[in-house]
Structure formats: C-alpha cells, structure tokens
Design a protein around this nucleic acid. Structure first.
Length: 738
DNA sequence: AAAAAAT
C-alpha cells in the first residue's frame, strides 16, 4: 500500500476543465454543448417518455383481474411525497450503534487490516456489535446495553419480562391449530395467540427504527414508471396501501415509516402477493421492492400465525431439553446476493415487524457464526440470508426450512451471476422446504435471462410476471457524463471533480457546506475496478485531505459495514468502492457517482450509476473513459442515447470504429447484456435497432427469451421447453482485455 | 490480469 501522493496542484487548466465538463471531454474535442446541471435537466418534462416500454405490449396472457380487494376501503391517497423506500433504514436501524468512530482514527485502524492482513485493530462496536443490539430483546437482557439498551423490539422485551422471568405461562396458541403448551420460549413469546394484534409499543425502539427514514422525496416521477403484469388471473393493482387489508400492524408500521403511497412495484406486487400468487418481478432495487414483498408477506404471517412451525419448534425444544430451540423454523426466507444487501433487507424487515411477534434474523458470511447462531436461537420467523452461510446453518442443524412458506429470491440474476445456483438449489430443492405450489415464492431480478427463466420455471408455480420500468439508473433523473481521462490524469481529475462538486452556481446559495467538503447531503461514490485500486485511491484521497473511506471484498465484513455506515451517515461523504457496492445498495443522498474506472460490462455500469438518482432524486454520474474502455463503447453509447444524455462526439466515433473493428465479436458475460432491464424497457419502447445492436449474444433465434421485450415473451417463456440456445460465453472482452 | 461469496 504505497501512498502514491500525486502532486496535484489543482492546476488552473484542470479546474477549468472540470468546471466545464464539455470542454474537458476531451480528447475528441468535447461535445461543445452546454452542461445541464442535474437539477435543471429534470425540468424538461417532455423528456420523460424515455424509459417507457409500451404498456400495450401484450404477451399473450389474458389478464383477468380478480376482485379480491374492495376498492372502496378508504382509498385515501396522499399526494406528493412518498417515503416508501428502504433508504435510510440503516441510519435509523443502526442509530443505536456505538459512538461514531473517529474518521481518521478509525481509518487508521482498518487500514491496517487491509494492507497487511493483520487483523486486530480494535474496532469498537462497529459491525457486529451493531446488530447485536438489534435484538437485545427477546430472551434476556440486551447484550450491548451500553449502546442500545433496549435494542430489541419492545414487544419482545415485554414478553421477556412477562414470561421469561415468570415461567412461561401458556400455551395457547391455537390459531395454527395447535394447543400450545410447554414452556419453551417460543410459546412464551406467543402468549397471545393472535399474531395479528400488535404488541406493546416501545418508544425507544420505535425511534431507533423509524427516526431516520425521512427523506421526503418528491414522488411524482414515479407515477410515470411503467409496470406490466402478465399471467393468469392477475389481481388488480392498488393505488393506496389502504386498498388492500394488510392488518393493523402493517398499517401502523407503514405510517411510522411515513410511506404515504405505494410505489409502482408495490402497487402491483402487494396485491399479487396478498392473493398468494407466485411472482417473478423484474425491478430494480430502489423501486421500493423490499417493502413490496415484506409488507404483504409479513401481513400474511400476522394473519395466519406461526402455524406448524410453532409445534415444530416446540418439539425441537423438547428434543433438545433445556437447550431447546436449537433449530429454528423460519416461516419466511429471503435470499440475497451480498451481505450488505442482506443487512439492508433485514433492517427493513425490523421495521415491518415492529410490534409484531415476528422476529427477523439475518445470517451471512464474514461475521461470527456463533453470534449469529445465538441470535437465531432467540427465535427466528423471518430469515434474511446469503446463500453460503444459510447452507452452513442448515448443515449445522440450526435452521429447518420445513415450514418456510414464503420464499423470496432478491436480485436473483446477481445471485446466479455470482455462482450461487448450487447453493440456491440446495436450499430450495434439496432440503426440507415445502415444494412450489405449497410455499409461496417471489423472485426479483433486474434482468430476465435464460438462467433466471429456468429458475423461475423450477421454483415458481403459475406465477405472475411483473415488469417494472427502471427508476433510477438510466432514466433521466441521472445526468450521465462521460469524460475522456487518461489513466495518468485520473487522480488529479478526480480531485478537481470533487472540488467542483458540480454544484451548479444557480443553487450555490442553498449549499451550506463548502463544495469540497460535501456534507451528508451530498455523498459521492467513486467506483474503481480493483480492490487494490480501491485501497490506493482511498489512500490518495485521504492524503489529499478528504473524508473518505472505502469498501471492497477483501476488507473484513466489519470494516465493510463500518465503511458503509460512515458513508451513509455523511461522516465520510466519499466512498471508494469496487463492484461490491454496485448493486442493490440503497444509500440515500448519493449525489454523484464517479466511475473512476469504467466497468467492462454495461449492466455493471447501469447498476453503478443507479446508486444515485434514487427514489426520484436527481443524480449525477461521471465516467472516466480512455483507451482501456473500448469494450464498453458501444453499449455505453446506447445507454446514453437511450437516456437522452449528451453524447460526446468522440464517443460516437469510437463506437462506430469499434463496431466495425469487432463486428463479429461476441459480448461479454453470460447474460449481462442480453436483456438487461434496459432491454425490456427499450425493446418495447420502440427502438427497434436496439436488440439488433446487441449483437449475437442472445438475440439469435431466441426471441422468446427476451422477457417481454422483443415480442417473444409469450412463447417459450412459460413453456418448459425451448431453452436451447445460444447462451454460450461467446468470445468476450473484459476490462482487462480478456 | 476482477469481484463476489461459507470456512
């Protein structure tokens, strides 16, 4: 880890270059047009049409709505603001974290970890301690009383007081058809048989969970997001959370979360899930999809109670004597690709589970498994997990999926991409999980390539396919800039960029902090391609005096979480990250995403820039482009055009050249490009050239696989045959030129 | 020649 402190004097030319990105763009001479600041771009409503695929495109499925929901029931709609996203949840959720670590000191600490492999810097309650607290509740006194004495849910504490100490009373859980009994804690916790009734409030917990999420986002744009639902007997979508009866607890937590209106994906997914249908949804994180499944699933669990799982847990408890409750039988399982995403979902689940008897848990690798086991043993009704660690837990006999009637695969494409398919199949098919048709299964994926289709075929029963237009990524609430920067100039250029912070002069008066010290309201996410590069760049920025931190896969889990926390909280408003942070993470207030290194894969690009401009906010994405990035030229151009962004002329020429040079070349990655979310938008949006542009990847002979894009959706998508096809990893060229 | 994820 050498600190290459580049001597960057912030030369005048550089500054000018940044302040006028157009002239900086390049080499090619720049595009010579005005730079439209993000806050102005959006005013042009006429540009809005961009991302709509035609809702009219039908896929051959009759949609015969069932009227399951009485629309009359208080369909009070509110206007304007919707906070219904999982932003901030970490802020809120981890409010109870220990005292903030000193930026600098802290950094020193984990910096050691990365470089040398020495691993012992004491990090106070970072990372694990944090979600230790989360549940301090149930079985006993909170573990980390100092930080979060009542960390757990009030109700749990309550029941702990009432029962744990006083020898559990009851047994009467009848709802699921069981006479309860015995004195396992399980039973104690369900001393009130009715899971649909809220438990006692707990101010402290309430504050911890809900105080942070107050983004007040103007949501108007969301009404434009196209959603298409196909499948037999698709229930009608809702317009208000009140249009479907989710019960007292859910409605209370919706209110506490300040969700006023459902997002598009929620409008559709909630009634589908509530009517017990399987679901395959193409939607991005940031579209509100976490709540879209958590709300109805938990609502259903509250209504139905624990059912057989209670008995199972009891038996288990008896078998294990006083060490009972060894094995937990979650009623619901959510699988996610990355640890951070799992945590994020878990944090959201805690909110939705507030004042309920449902106890959410999260397990993932890189953290002390013993601690996670102990957490599980306090009860686990809803489990959020990364696949590897869950398999581990199952093999250790800590988790039984016998009663897991709700299964959610989040970011399914990403999970497959990361090679989790064996683990996923192990979990879903080769264990004790109820079969499809019995359990209810929901899959979420940004793309819908063949691999996902097969998974859907195998895991889902008579499902509804939901396609939600992309919210953040390539839509117009993100201003995308591509700038030609040679490798050697990247650092100084970055500094200039950070200093300029692209705060348009028109709004300078509203900016309270100096641009070079972006406050919590303007976070900057800098992506690099390698872990080494992340370390090096962070060191560089650090020496240049920026409050920054970094995240990548070689850092300890604790450091990753801490870094994320520092970033989210605004203490380190600059985060240098590898691909680990590209997907799924929902961090509010990311105003600027900088692709210090462009990825080789356009989907990765889309995911990255999607970290900004979230939930209706405006964002800026700046990408450094040079010779090394020729492989992404064409795709990048497509994206820019599609999102109605300015296209540097040099990029255009390059794309043209490149296309000629490599017309026979295949595309990278299995399905990264094939029909990304953008495809399904775009193809039906009328850009006929789009699919053909994308070349031999998966278009050939495969119309049917293109989701609902290329017109072939109806065909072999639902049928179990017809997969044969050209999904070969045909010659690809990646970032390294492989 | 990367990254991610169970250890």
């Amino acid at each position: 880890m050498s600190h290459v402190v580049v001597d960057n004097p912030h030369g005048l030319d550089q500054q000018l270059a940044v302040l006028d990105l157009n002239s900086a763009d390049g080499q090619g001479g720049g595009t010579g047009r005005r730079y439209i600041p993000p806050h102005l771009r959006n005013k042009d409503a006429s540009k809005n049409a961009g991302n709509a695929y035609s809702a009219g495109r039908q896929c051959g499925y009759s949609v015969a709505p069932i009227n399951l929901y009485s629309p009359g029931w208080d369909s009070g709609r509110s206007n304007g603001f919707v906070n219904g996203y999982h932003d901030n949840r970490t802020n809120g959720g981890f409010g109870g974290r220990g005292p903030p670590r000193n930026d600098r000191g802290g950094r020193g600490a984990y910096r050691g970890n990365r470089g040398g492999g020495s691993f012992n810097q004491p990090l106070q309650n970072a990372g694990f301690g944090s979600y230790d607290n989360k549940d301090g509740s149930w079985g006993g006194p909170p573990r980390d009383a100092a930080y979060n004495s009542f960390g757990g849910r009030s109700d749990r504490n309550k029941s702990a007081f009432f029962n744990d100490r006083g020898a559990g009373s009851r047994g009467r859980y009848e709802r699921g058809g069981f006479a309860g009994g015995g004195n396992t804690r399980w039973v104690e916790d369900s001393r009130d048989d009715d899971w649909s009734k809220p438990t006692a409030p707990n101010e402290r917990l309430e504050h911890e969970l809900f105080s942070g999420s107050n983004t007040g986002i103007n949501f108007e744009k969301y009404d434009d997001i196209p959603v298409e639902a196909t499948g037999s007997n698709c229930p009608p979508h809702i317009e208000s959370f009140h249009d479907v009866d989710m019960g007292e607890i859910i409605m209370g937590n919706i209110t506490l979360s300040r969700y006023t209106r459902p997002t598009p994906v929620q409008k559709h997914a909630i009634p589908i899930i509530k009517s017990k249908r399987d679901l395959m949804a193409c939607a991005q994180t940031g579209s509100g999809k976490t709540a879209a499944f958590l709300l109805p699933v938990l609502s259903q669990i509250y209504t139905d109670g624990p059912g057989d799982a209670l008995q199972a847990a009891k038996n288990n408890g008896q078998e294990n004597g006083r060490y009972g409750r060894r094995k937990q039988y979650p009623l619901s399982l959510i699988l996610a690709p990355t640890r951070e995403l799992a945590l994020q979902i878990y944090d959201e689940a805690r909110k939705v589970a507030y004042r309920s008897r449902v106890r959410p848990c999260v397990v993932y690798g890189g953290a002390d498994i013993g601690q996670q086991i102990r957490d599980l043993e306090r009860g686990c009704h809803l489990l959020v997990a990364t696949p590897g660690r869950l398999v581990d837990m199952m093999e250790r006999g800590k988790i039984g999926l016998d009663y897991c009637n709700y299964l959610v695969l989040d970011e399914a494409d990403r999970m497959l991409d990361m090679g989790f398919e064996p683990q996923i199949r192990r979990i879903v098919e080769q264990d004790t999980m109820p079969p499809k048709g019995i359990r209810q299964t929901m899959m979420f994926s940004a793309t819908f390539p063949k691999e996902i289709q097969i998974l859907a075929r195998d895991f889902l029963e008579d499902y509804i396919f939901l396609a939600v237009g992309r919210v953040g990524s390539t839509s117009e609430n993100i201003t995308q800039k591509v700038v030609w920067v040679e490798e050697t100039d990247k650092r100084s250029f970055l500094l200039d960029l950070l200093n300029a912070t692209v705060i348009p002069s028109e709004v300078q008066e509203n900016v309270t902090e100096a641009p070079e010290k972006p406050g919590k309201d303007s976070l900057t996410l800098v992506f690099v391609e390698t872990k080494k590069g992340a370390d090096a760049l962070e060191d560089f920025l650090y020496h240049e005096g920026y409050a920054c931190t970094s995240i990548h896969g070689d850092r300890s889990q604790r450091d990753r979480e801490e870094a994320l926390h520092q970033f989210r909280s605004g203490r380190c408003p600059i985060l240098v990250a590898t691909a680990v942070a590209a997907r799924g993470l929902d961090i509010s207030n990311v105003k600027h995403v900088i692709n210090f290194d462009l990825p080789s894969d356009i989907e990765e690009y889309v995911h990255r820039i999607g970290r900004t401009g979230r939930v209706g906010n405006l964002g800026l994405a700046t990408s450094f482009f040079n010779d090394k990035n020729s492989n992404i030229t064409k795709d990048l151009l497509d994206i820019l055009v599609e999102a109605k962004q300015e296209v540097p002329s040099w990029l255009e020429s390059l794309a043209y050249e490149h296309q000629h040079k490599s017309s026979t070349r295949g595309r990278s990655k299995r399905f990264s490009g094939g029909f990304g979310a953008r495809d399904y938008r775009q193809t039906s949006g009328g850009s006929g050239s789009f699919s053909s542009n994308r070349g031999g990847r998966n278009t050939g002979g495969h119309g049917g696989n293109r989701g609902f894009g290329g017109g072939g959706f109806g065909g072999n998508f639902y049928s179990n045959d017809g997969y044969g096809g050209n999904y070969s990893h045909s010659g690809s060229v990646d970032w390294w030129g492989n």
